[in-house]
Design a protein around this nucleic acid. Sequence first.
DNA 1: GTTTGACCTTGACGCTGCGTCAACTTCTAG
DNA 2: CTAGAAGTTGACGCAGCGTCAAGGTCAAAC
Lengths: 252, 252
Amino acid sequence: MEWTIQELAARAGITSRTLRHYDRVGLLAPSRVGPNGYRYYDPTAVARLQRILLMRRLGMGLSAIAEVLADEVDTCDGLRAHIGELEEERDRIERQIRSVRHTLEALRSGAEPRMDVMLAGFNDRYKDEVVSRWGERAFQVSNDWWHGKTLDQQQAWKQAAEDLVAAWVTAAKAEVSPTSEHAQSLAARHVRWLSQIPGTPTAEGDRERSIEMVKCLGDMYVDDPRFAGMYDDAAGATFVRDALHVYARTRM
Amino acid sequence: MEWTIQELAARAGITSRTLRHYDRVGLLAPSRVGPNGYRYYDPTAVARLQRILLMRRLGMGLSAIAEVLADEVDTCDGLRAHIGELEEERDRIERQIRSVRHTLEALRSGAEPRMDVMLAGFNDRYKDEVVSRWGERAFQVSNDWWHGKTLDQQQAWKQAAEDLVAAWVTAAKAEVSPTSEHAQSLAARHVRWLSQIPGTPTAEGDRERSIEMVKCLGDMYVDDPRFAGMYDDAAGATFVRDALHVYARTRM
DNA sequence: GTTTGACCTTGACGCTGCGTCAACTTCTAG
DNA sequence: CTAGAAGTTGACGCAGCGTCAAGGTCAAAC
């Protein structure tokens, strides 16, 4: 079976010009060229084109695609690498979906983006508050850390926080006890999450002040109006606070 | 809070040149321009940039992005549309992953791609066989139909077939009876799938020959070596054959 | 046999979305 | 005050095609 340039273009959803371009740059030569100069493509060429279009969709340059196709001694390796790329791309999109979805909800409820609040303690918008409570250096270091991250990294971090909040809400709804193993493991995760922020007591291994900070944070979840609704309702916030207090007292 | 052009570029993973370009084409103006001509960006600008980069990743042109951002009277609508786009993109990638994964497996096992076999009855590679069994016209019509589809459409169709096979294998493993409601609904789905191919008896409503064809196909799954392993093992193929036979006898 | 119209060819120029100097100014730190 | 890092505005370049232009080829109709 063979196809003319137009037939192949139509089937692939591209133009004949693109195929001629690929021929010229040596990316995809027709399987046969008629004595009249006409280009004809066979199924092998079609398969190659499919791979090319796949990679192009991922934003790869034509030269990069050519390299991949050339270096590909083992087709299996190429495909495996390809699956990896696709999975990464999917995960990235998945995260973006959740992020946008969250932004949408926040917008609808008229609230500020939750995570801006979550970062309240270490966001420059709350500088005075932080400085008075944890000192100038804690503010500086944590602030620099945050602004040193790329948007992608920030988003990933926020996503981790989102997941944590979601886990808390689920646990609270399940009406288990704040002292239960599950709740305590969530608290541990919460503290680990906090300790990623440099400059804070938990990150610096200052046990006394870490305990104080975790308890303070728990109280804020309940009392501070800026956190209102973050853990769904008052019961949720209370659950988180209790769990954090217990964890601070017994396991830190 | 404000950032200089370099700070923002670093955080967004782009270059300052890109930001200047966006300014020039009116896509993203800095929130403030100093008396020295320096550009400064505030969080609002950052949010807008995030949306721009998001859409750009989806392959949109800058002018198209500008239009979207301009037409967006309601931010919520824009975000919702955006989620839709992202979900579609994710699904597309998901399908590609499955497709590539399948190709890989087929390659590893040394077998031909399964779907080439699945199409055996109506693939030009098996022309003689088809013609002798279902007539010249059935071959012609179905073949034209298949080659008239775009690569994307072909892939979607193959994916549907993959899903069908997977459902069959699952059902076979569950050791339900071929006469069970579930197996029979799968058989119905199988026939509907077949009837999408123009020129075949099932597509043309020829009841007698449709029954014959479904039974014949079932037999081939078991007997024809080209289908070996498609339904995992002999037991799987037998299960499918039995279910199809029962369906053909009692419900067609 | 010729004509018509669809499809093929090779240039060649244009457009988008930046990368990359160049030439110059401005801010920051010692 | 001076070095160096970072800012500015052009201006040119490059990839990946779209889009004529100026023709050859083919299948079918007349």
